[in-house]
Amino acid sequence: MTHVDSHPQRLKVGRSGPWSAALPMLPAVFMVAPLVIVALLFIVYPLVKLGIDSFTGGSGGFSNYSAVFQSAAIRNSLVSTLLMSAVVTVLCLLLGGSLAWSLSKPGNKILKTLLWTAVLLPFWMGVVVKTYAWAVLLANNGLINSFFMRIGLIDEPMTLLYTPMAVVLGMTYTMLPYAVLAMYPTMAGFDKELLNSASVLGSSNTGAMYRVWLPLVRPGLVAGGAIVFAISIGFYITPVLLGGAQTPFMATVIGDDIFAYFNYPRAAASSVILLVIALTVLIATLKTVGVKALKGGLEK
């Protein structure tokens, strides 16, 4: 039975009010919770435990850290690791920078596709496979030596494998894609007309690159360098495969401490030292160039 109202009723269509994209608190917490738990459990906890172990293991206190610095092998290792990583970083910046710059300029599409493929292909190969490929290439009876002997440039094969150079080569090859991808966004966003502008104002080509291009792509360069350096100091496989068991990279000595000498506390101390160095580099970068540049590089 219908009845007539004196005033018309309002239509209720669920919750009134404009649709908002912002999540209310409770659902948001639930959605983020799994990620936070995983992060806490698998990243934060092990790291904290690592730090604690480094101070409580063995004789406790700073003894493990002094053990690290007292061992000539580990000291050398740290220095070599930092030095070689620095060299790799510089090489990656130079090579990767020119690659990123070439890729960001308008040009032949086919050529650019090829270039992108060449840059990104190493990404999709396992690090062992591509490092081993270098070992095969550099061996005494490998491709490079055979080629140079064949064309008569050398009589004896050159010692290329198991040298610091081999390690630097292999690491640069592996890290190059990271560098290119970190630097590309900044370079692609660079207004090429600025170079023309500088030119008309009287700047030589190199001058324009130095005064205009460099300051504007610097954030990308710094971000790329930080990423490459932070990852390089932790390398394990490439130094071992290309540098031999005697190549002192930090990861190798840490591995020794774990697998051969069962000196976990000292291994923990070494690891913390590496971690602190990597964090320092990254934080310093963040401060200089800002979060955006760093994110741009890591997001790829």
Binding site: D191, E193, N196, S197, S199, V200, L201, S203, S204
Partner: peptide, 14 residues
């Protein structure tokens, strides 16, 4: 361009 003693104003200012 750098030696032509010109001045130029670009469309997007540059």
């Amino acid at each position: 361009p750098s030696e032509r003693k010109l001045g130029m104003v670009f469309q997007n200012y540059a």
